[in-house]
Design a protein around this nucleic acid. Structure first.
Lengths: 150, 150
DNA sequence: GGTAAATAAGATAATTAATGTCTTATTTAT
DNA sequence: ATAAATAAGACATTAATTATCTTATTTACC
């Protein structure tokens, strides 16, 4: 019951972009190096983020990614669920038919509550808040090392 | 980010035993059939529950399992964590060294809060509560079908 | 337009975790 | 002593995750 690497990488990428500001194009390479994400892995992650309309991908030289919505308008929950799918915690919440009683099942109700709380907590915080405070993702506008990964 | 089958089975098994009452010996076969758990899989799960002092295993003819503590004294969280390990949600919570700033990282703080909430919710409900109310685990003292799984 | 830089897209491989099964050993009621 | 019941651990299968590789496409710049 843990966030996947892909989910973790997506969060890092999004926080990094949010820190740079909405619409600011950043090269994939810079993101990889700064947020410590394997280059090809980020490519796949970015595709999903783009499909979900969270970023825009620009190809070609001077290409890269930029944040599509305002950082205030994207929650941590959104980013996480784009990557790992909707959070359910327990199978019987996802597929009510897997459990005959669902609605009146005491165990079911606990998982339902836990799930709602979790989604609420992750949904209450925006990329803007995450980016404006100090975080593990190094964002200072320093020079990028020239050791490419690609 | 979902409870494993093993975790789900463990909960079913424990709720079933709790419904029967502390100290009441129930055959493994009965539990398997009623809670719909593959027999050999339950064997492994039971070993972990026993190691964690949640049940006692009796071998031999007329053997089976019974609840060691009072149902009031076992939380859903305990059962779940015996099976899947301590819940962390995010790697950086489990291993603070995986993230340089940990304490002051804004992302870290959200996961920490979410984790605490989740563990609190699961920790607040006991097997006694789960067993006394209606649940998906069929517990009525009916006859067991004679079609053995073993 | 041509070229090179940058990312896309999808296939594939490697790794790890989860699930389930099988075999042999041990315990215990009768 | 025997048979019933579970233990313990090895093994197999499946699925998910993570990562990489190859080929294709886009686009800035000459």
């Amino acid at each position: 019951m843990r966030l996947t690497r892909a989910g973790e990488y997506a969060v890092r990428c999004m926080v990094y972009l949010a820190h740079k500001g909405q619409g600011v194009l950043i090269s994939k390479q810079e993101i990889c190096e700064r947020a410590d994400i394997p280059s090809h892995f980020l490519a796949k992650i970015a595709q999903e983020l783009a499909k979900a309309q969270l970023i825009i991908i620009r190809q070609g030289p001077k290409g890269g990614y930029y944040l599509l919505p305002q950082p205030e308008d994207v929650s941590l929950l959104q980013v996480v669920e784009v990557m790992i799918g909707e959070i359910f915690l327990n199978d019987c919440i996802d597929r009510p038919q897997s459990c005959t009683l669902s609605k009146s099942c005491s165990v079911h109700r606990v998982w339902d509550k836990a799930r709602n709380q979790l989604r609420e907590t992750l949904g209450a915080v925006s990329l803007a808040e995450l980016a404006e405070k100090e975080s593990c993702i190094p964002v200072f506008p320093a020079s990028i090392s020239s050791s490419s990964q690609e």
